[in-house]
């Protein structure tokens, strides 16, 4: 498992966009050098209004329960106000390059980490745009065309930012899903020693190529480590078997044979047997037995064990 700091670093690295990708996104938003110029042109205006806009912004955030909880501590509030101010001013400072993008991704990641709902995040952007639009049109009252143009440029840039932020949200969710899949895989492939020389491999859940490969490797290493002669592979818990899965199964059995172990497959449900016959899967020389019990019995016979029921049955209630 990764600790949070490592995870964050990886996030920033993984999402690092190539210059080409940045160009592509800007092109799609039609963000040109002209827009950059328009934005840097209102830098002094931004400097002048920054404090007011930020105050309005937090007043807005503090009036909603969902967002208020994030700023309970006055110190935290002061800190985020400062970084928000920086962020705000950065919008009109030009140079929307690799460094700018990385910074935006980081900001997105921070919001994701504190579990700020994405709708609040988008709402914040919307509030920003509306407030700034008001100020812009006030400032350029005599030339509304210019104000409109600058606002268009600002909109392009904010949408670039929003895209990046959403990406960090999605990436983090995908990471969680990957981690969980990994956890499921690790959980669901136990290789159990049943007797000296006899392993049981119960397979539960769907088998995909990756899992099949992992299963085979794990099984083969267990064969070597436990000096196994017979393996019982139980597929009762496998919901469906297609030609790929069957192929994996045959390969696993063959590989086990190459290491001198005999594999017995058990638990083929009637529906699965029917599918296999219908689609013409040849299990070839794979030994199949109805259920796990019969499989274990056959394995014991192969190993020369004989299980005898004793007359001397201990009282189950008695303490061992």
């Amino acid at each position: 498992m990764l600790n949070p700091t490592q995870g964050r670093k990886l996030l920033a690295q993984e999402l690092m966009l190539s210059d080409q990708e940045i160009q592509k996104r800007k092109a799609f938003l039609e963000f040109s050098a002209e827009d950059e110029k328009a934005l840097t042109g209102i830098n002094d205006l931004a400097e002048r209004y920054a404090s007011v806009v930020i105050e309005d912004f937090y007043k807005h955030l503090m009036s909603f329960e969902e967002t208020r909880v994030f700023f309970k501590d006055p110190k935290v509030l002061q800190r985020v106000k400062n970084s928000q101010r920086e962020y705000f001013l950065r919008l009109t400072k030009g140079n929307y390059d690799q460094e700018y993008i990385t910074n935006r991704l980081k900001i997105g990641a921070v919001h994701e980490r504190i579990e700020l709902p994405i709708q609040s995040y988008l709402g914040m952007y919307n509030f920003y745009l509306r407030t700034v639009a008001q100020r812009l049109f006030d400032a350029f009252r005599s030339e509304p065309d210019h104000a409109f143009k600058v606002f268009g440029s600002l909109m392009k840039l904010t949408f670039l930012d929003i895209g990046l932020a959403i990406e960090t949200y999605i990436d983090s969710r995908e990471r969680t899903i990957r981690d969980q899949q990994e956890a499921i895989r690790e959980l669901s492939t136990p290789v159990l020693q049943f007797r000296p020389g006899l392993l049981i491999l119960p397979i539960v859940g769907l088998i995909d190529s990756q899992r099949a490969q992992q299963l085979t490797e794990q099984l083969l290493h267990s064969i070597r480590a436990n000096r196994t002669k017979v393996i019982v592979i139980d597929i009762t818990g496998v919901p469906s078997v297609d030609s790929r899965v069957a192929n994996h199964l045959v390969q696993t059995v063959e590989a086990a044979r190459l290491m001198g172990a005999t594999a017995i497959v058990t638990g083929v449900a009637p529906e699965i047997a029917q599918t296999m016959v219908t689609i013409g899967i040849d299990l070839g020389r794979v030994r199949t037995v109805g259920d796990l019990q019969s499989g274990i019995e056959q394995a014991e016979r192969l190993l020369g064990y004989r299980v005898v029921q004793s007359d001397d049955v201990p009282d189950p209630n008695e303490q061992a």
Binding site: H221, Q251, L258
Partner: peptide, 11 residues
């Protein structure tokens, strides 16, 4: 036959 060898042979 080692596990890795067995896997590649089967494949």
């Amino acid at each position: 036959i080692q596990p890795e060898v067995a896997v590649s042979m089967v494949q």
